[in-house]
Amino acid sequence: MQKGRSEILTPSTAGTKLTEHAVPKIIAAHGEAGRWCWEEYFGGRIRNANTRKTYLHAVRNFLHWCDTEGVPLQEISPGMVGRYFDLHPGSTPTKKLHMSAIRGLFDVLVQRHVMILNPALSVRTERYSVTEGKTPEITVEQSRQLLKSIELQSAIDFRDRAIISMLVYTAARVGAVAKLRLGDLVDEGNHLMIKFREKGGKDRSIPARISLREELDEYLVMLPINGSSKDDPVFRSAVGRTGLLTESPMSAIDICRMVKRRLKAAGLPLSASPHSFRSCTATDLLEQGISLEDVQYLLGHSDSRVTRLYDRRQRKITRNIVERISV
């Protein structure tokens, strides 16, 4: 897109043109009251770091667009907000997320009497309905193939197998797996409990099946001796291509990249991700007759409708139906 007064920044250009901590001048123009609202919203009300980053990008992008249009904060109207989203290049879910971020900031500005009304309150985005999740699918057979493809020659191999097994057998989110500390692995005698810190501040304990516990034991004995306190990370990064482990934790991005490498080495579709294992596990359990409520509890969903998005049984039924068309 060529530069113009109504240009909407992409995430990359927004990140380079707009610093993370500076208060946008359209807000700073209202002095300490504006700065207070900005800090209250992003520094006080939004506690999740990922949400804060996403909301910051959305709000900065919108305020930058208003600034290029030459419209001060007090003159932003519902029509302007609607026109902005008419120009917005994102998908419907992205637009809804960005609208939520913008409405939230305006709510704070109204509450602190910087603005009289919230101009985004009455603006509607497109309707969006989801009956099946968009997480790329990986089947039970493919998951087995992936685990079998790992040749156990170094500590990295034992680590990667343990991570993938944990994603499969606990249905935990990749972020929760990356946050695990040694103190989160609690030996209760006849079984091992794994304590996950999930998004939304939820703490969940999931028992490790026997095979997962064995794989964890085989991996943990390879950790550096000086990195064995309860606050040390379970899954460690590697020293280049040496096959040696460091004392630093793997990030969620590190785990995603590892899964992609392992998928490629196993000759499996690269569209799958760590989140695909949650869908695989949910569908597998539901096919075996496990109740939706039990699967919902395992996945940590507060609403069963979210759990249904992970159920890919209907997709298989659809495939069977279309194959029977006689044309």
Rank of each mutant, 00 (worst) to 15 (best):
K3E: 14
T10E: 07
S12V: 07
A14P: 03
A14R: 06
T16I: 07
K17G: 00
L18Q: 07
H21I: 13
I27A: 04
H30T: 14
A33V: 10
C37G: 11
E39V: 12
E40V: 15
Y41A: 06
Y41S: 04
F42P: 03
I46W: 13
T51K: 02
K53N: 00
Y55Q: 03
H57E: 03
A58C: 07
V59H: 05
F62H: 07
L63H: 11
L63F: 03
L63A: 11
W65C: 02
W65I: 01
T68W: 00
E69C: 14
L73V: 05
S77Q: 08
V81S: 11
Y84L: 05
D86P: 00
T92C: 12
T92N: 13
P93E: 02
K95Q: 15
K96I: 15
S100Y: 10
I102K: 14
R103A: 02
G104W: 01
G104C: 09
Q111I: 09
R112P: 05
H113D: 15
L117N: 15
A120E: 04
R124Q: 13
E126Q: 12
E126P: 12
R127S: 13
T131I: 01
G133N: 02
G133R: 00
G133M: 01
E137M: 03
T139M: 01
E141F: 03
Q142S: 02
S143T: 15
L146Q: 05
L147P: 00
E151C: 06
F158I: 02
R159A: 04
R159P: 10
R161G: 00
R161Y: 09
R161E: 12
S165D: 11
M166V: 10
Y169H: 15
T170L: 11
A172F: 04
A172Q: 07
G175S: 09
A176F: 09
A176I: 06
A178P: 03
K179S: 08
R181L: 10
V186E: 07
V186I: 13
E188G: 01
G189K: 09
G189V: 09
N190R: 11
N190S: 08
H191F: 14
H191P: 01
K199G: 10
G201T: 07
R204C: 05
S205W: 00
P207G: 11
I210G: 02
I210K: 14
S211T: 08
L212W: 13
L216N: 10
L216R: 06
D217C: 08
E218Q: 13
M222L: 15
I225G: 07
S229M: 14
K230Q: 15
D232V: 05
V234G: 04
S237F: 02
S237C: 01
A238Y: 08
V239D: 11
G243A: 05
G243T: 03
G243K: 07
L244D: 12
L245R: 04
S248L: 15
S248E: 14
M250V: 10
R262W: 08
K264Y: 14
L268W: 09
P269Y: 12
A272G: 08
S273G: 08
H275N: 06
H275I: 05
H275A: 02
S279E: 02
T281E: 08
L285S: 02
L285Q: 04
L286N: 01
G289M: 11
G289D: 03
I290Q: 10
D294G: 06
H301K: 09
S302T: 15
S302Y: 10
R305C: 00
R305Y: 12
Y310A: 06
D311G: 06
Q314Y: 14
R315C: 00
E323M: 04
I325A: 00
